[in-house]
Amino acid sequence: MRVGLFVTCFNDTLFPQVGRATVSVLERLGVRVEFPEAQTCCGQMHFNSGYRPECVPLVRRFADVFAGYEAVVTPSASCAAMVRHYHHVVDPAVAVPKVYELCEYLIDVLNVTDVGAHFPHTVAFHATCHSQRLLHIGDRPRRLLEAVDGLDLRPLAHPAECCGFGGTFSVKNPDTSTAMGIDKVADIRGTGAEVLASADTSCLMHIGGLMSRQGNPMRILHLAEILAATK
């Protein structure tokens, strides 16, 4: 199977370690990953902010870049949701490539839950809204994390609550976004976990930014980074 990695513009630029971890997990499981360098962005920010015409070339470019791949894997639930649910809304004529969020690909396609990772820490997992309500990845992240050697998963009290990031919502409605984020931070801290993880770095950047400003940062990792960790 030809697998293309869609690293996302966000991870590419700000969190390259997430892309590297994704490659490492997939290669460890015997997947040959390609990174088509012509890729850029799925258009989510433009789409969600109302910039539809700007979004059209991005959607078409995405389809062209990944046209030859049987599977596109991405370490971003919200970008996967953008492609799956909205690319055909932006351009009904476009042939939307088959995109999998990393957890989906591991569990649904490769049929693995134990990826051979070792991570002896307590972890709180933030189930992002788009991963749950648009992609419906459900308990896949939990199953993957529970299979990690040494990992102790700590449940949140209100796992279904939005963290308040919401893309440009975070800057267009900064006060409300912050109020939501602060409640999420309190919930996360209440778990007593050492590490916070998620399937979306964007939400993590917001939550982490609040924690850092509170003067009490926490170790924050994308799920892929935990799955990539070995003894």
């Binding site: 690293v7 700000l14 892309g19 990174f35 800057v171 984020g181 609040l210």
Partner: peptide, 25 residues
């Protein structure tokens, strides 16, 4: 405004020294 709105309550990690695509290449 956008920048101020973010940094009013949040920090941002400094961009990494090398993007993913640079690493890949």
């Amino acid at each position: 405004f956008w920048i101020r709105a973010w940094f009013g309550t949040r920090d941002l990690p400094a961009p990494p020294g090398q993007s993913f695509r640079a690493w890949w290449r």
